Amino acid sequence: TSEDEWQCTECKKFNSPSKRYCFRCWALRKD
């Protein structure tokens, strides 16, 4: 669900929880 998505701190895109990197800008997920 969208509620589980995380928001990239670099480009603000919301990504799948299973992705460690942002799909748009490839920044590593910040915990």
Rank of each mutant, 00 (worst) to 15 (best):
T1F: 03
T1E: 05
T1N: 06
T1C: 02
T1H: 00
T1A: 03
T1W: 04
T1M: 09
S2W: 07
S2D: 13
S2M: 05
S2E: 08
S2G: 08
S2Y: 07
S2L: 06
S2Q: 15
E3S: 08
E3H: 04
E3R: 03
E3N: 05
E3Q: 01
E3T: 09
D4L: 10
D4C: 02
D4S: 06
D4W: 02
D4V: 07
D4R: 05
D4I: 11
D4H: 04
E5N: 12
E5I: 08
E5M: 12
E5A: 09
E5L: 09
E5V: 08
E5H: 11
E5C: 12
W6T: 09
W6D: 04
W6Y: 06
W6Q: 14
W6I: 06
Q7A: 05
Q7S: 02
Q7L: 04
Q7E: 11
Q7I: 08
C8Y: 00
C8H: 02
C8M: 01
C8D: 01
C8W: 06
T9K: 05
T9M: 09
T9D: 09
T9H: 10
T9Q: 06
T9P: 07
E10T: 09
E10D: 13
E10A: 04
E10P: 01
E10F: 09
E10K: 04
E10S: 11
E10N: 12
E10V: 06
C11D: 01
C11E: 02
C11S: 01
C11Q: 01
C11H: 04
C11F: 00
K12W: 03
K12P: 07
K12S: 10
K12V: 02
K12A: 12
K12Q: 10
K12G: 15
K12M: 07
K13H: 10
K13A: 11
K13V: 08
K13T: 08
K13I: 07
K13Q: 13
K13L: 12
K13R: 07
K13W: 06
K13P: 06
F14L: 09
F14V: 13
F14C: 05
F14M: 09
F14K: 08
F14T: 14
F14H: 11
F14A: 07
N15M: 05
N15E: 14
N15S: 10
N15A: 05
N15P: 05
N15D: 10
N15R: 04
N15K: 06
S16W: 05
S16P: 11
S16M: 01
S16F: 13
S16T: 09
S16A: 13
P17S: 09
P17A: 13
P17D: 14
P17H: 11
P17M: 09
P17L: 08
P17C: 00
P17W: 00
S18V: 05
S18L: 04
S18K: 15
S18Q: 08
S18T: 11
S18D: 08
K19T: 14
K19D: 14
K19C: 12
K19S: 13
K19P: 09
R20Q: 15
R20H: 14
R20I: 14
R20K: 14
R20Y: 14
R20W: 12
R20L: 14
Y21K: 14
Y21C: 11
Y21P: 12
C22V: 00
C22Q: 01
C22I: 00
C22H: 01
C22Y: 00
C22N: 02
F23V: 10
F23A: 15
F23N: 05
F23Y: 12
F23L: 10
F23Q: 06
F23K: 04
F23M: 02
R24M: 06
R24D: 13
R24G: 11
R24P: 10
R24V: 01
R24H: 15
R24N: 13
C25Y: 00
C25S: 01
C25P: 01
C25Q: 01
C25V: 00
C25N: 01
C25E: 02
C25L: 00
W26M: 15
W26V: 11
W26T: 15
A27V: 10
A27Y: 04
A27P: 10
L28N: 09
L28E: 15
L28C: 11
R29A: 12
R29L: 07
R29C: 05
K30S: 13
K30V: 12
K30W: 03
D31N: 06
D31A: 07
D31V: 05
D31Q: 12
D31G: 06
D31L: 02
